[in-house]
Amino acid sequence: MADRVPLVRVENAVKYFPAGLGASVKAVDGVSFEIYTGETLGLVGESGCGKSTLGRLITQLHPATSGNIFFEGIDLTKLSGEKLRQHRRQLQMIFQDPYSSLNPRMTVGDIIAEPLENFGMLRGKAKDKRVQELLKVVGLNPYFNNRYPHEFSGGQRQRIGIARALALRPKLIVSQILNLMQDLRNEFNLTYLFVAHDLSVVRHISDRVAVMYLGKIVEIADSVEIYRNPRHPYTKALLSSIPIPDPDIQAQRRVVSLAGEIPSPVNPPSGCRFHTRCPIARAPGICSETEPPLEEKGREHRAACHFSAEVPAAV
C-alpha cells in the first residue's frame, strides 16, 4: 500500500519526567522507528508503557528529553516558538476521553473553529461554512454548531474532537480512538499513529503494529505477521491475554501468564527489561545482562529478544 516514504522518523527518542529526589520516570527510553506516508501504524502496550507519551512527543505536546523527531525531513526537536507552532499544524492528536478533551464552556462551533482562528486561516462566513462542513464530515448535524459539548453523547463528542483535529488539514494524526478512522483515511489523505491498549482493535485497523513495554519498542511488524508469528514473548503474552468473543475458541486457548508485575519505570530492570517476567528468559544470564537490540527477525519484522526463535508461533 504505502509508497514507503517515511513521513515521520523517530530517532532514539527519550522522555524522562522528574520524579523527585533526583529520580526520573523513564517514560520513553530510546525509541526509533518510522511512520510511512499513508499508513496506519498501531502502537500498543499496557498502561505506563510510554505509548501515550510517545504520541505526545511526536505531536510536540511534550518536548523530548533527547533524540530527534523528523517530520518530512525537518527535525522538530530543533524548532521552537512560532516556527514550531507553524510546523505542528501538520500533526494533530485525537484524544481518548471525550469528556475532558472538549472545553465545556465553549460551543461546538467555537471548538472546531479555534484552530482556524489560531492560524488566521478563515474568517466570518467562510469560517462558519468550514465548521459546518467539518461537522458534516464527521457525521454530525451541521446546525448543532451552537450547542455545548455536554449536550452530546460520548461517541458524538469523539466526533467533535475529530472535526477539530481535521480543521487544519493535518498530514499525521495521532489517535487514541477507532471511531471513523477508516472513513477519513482516504478522504483526507491521512497517515495515522493509532495509540491503544487493545491489540485486537489495533490489529483491526493498522497496517503495521509496534508493541511497547516499559519505555521501549519490543517488536514492530506487519499487523498480520505480528499476529501469526510474534517474535517477542511479551507480544505473545499480550496476544494470548486478549479475550476472543467466541466461547469455543476461548475454551481452547492457553493464556501465557506473566510472572509478577510491571516493574517501575523509575528503575527499569537491567539487560532486557522484560526478563523479570519472561517465561523464556535466561536470568541470570544474557537476558539480565545485555539489552537486546531491536533487530530484523524477518521481512519488515523487528523484535528485541535474544531468544526470539523460541517464541511459539500462532495463537
Binding site: L178, Q182, S200, R203, H204, I205, S223, V224, I244, D246
Partner: peptide
C-alpha cells in the same frame, strides 16, 4: 473487533 478476524 476480534483478534482472530480478518483485518479491515
Amino acid at each position: 473487533p476480534r483478534l482472530d478476524s480478518d483485518r479491515h
